[in-house]
């Protein structure tokens, strides 16, 4: 009973966060300017980091938190480099 309750709560949280990712993806597809798309990518990656941490708790694997940390680091570097290229008019 307790295990079923825990799994249900975490699956509800994961699906709500996935709905947020889909909304940001729509904005990234229809965004009028490139800055809109970069904002959507930034938000999507933060939500995806939390989704990986939720999967770590769902499957009881401690090592997935390292995956979340590396994913967040790569997303941060990606957003910084794209913003810098946008500022220097390379795109």
């Amino acid at each position: 009973m307790n295990e079923i309750f825990r799994t249900t709560i975490i699956q509800i949280s994961i699906w709500v966060a996935v709905a947020g990712v889909i909304l940001a993806l729509i904005r990234g597809l229809i965004g009028p300017t490139p800055a809109d798309r970069v904002v959507a990518i930034d938000s999507m990656t933060t939500v995806a980091t939390v989704i990986i941490a939720l999967f770590a708790h769902l499957f009881k694997r401690f090592i997935y938190l390292d995956v979340a940390l590396v994913f967040g680091l790569l997303a941060f570097i990606t957003v910084l480099i794209i913003a810098r290229c946008l500022e220097r008019r390379m795109i």
Partner: peptide
């Protein structure tokens, strides 16, 4: 805290979709 956090993770991209400006 898990439910509150996932709700905010849904509301942020909703604001991204609906606001008028970068």
């Amino acid at each position: 805290f898990l439910i509150i956090g996932s709700l905010f993770l849904f509301l942020g991209p909703l604001g991204i979709l609906r606001f008028p400006d970068v």
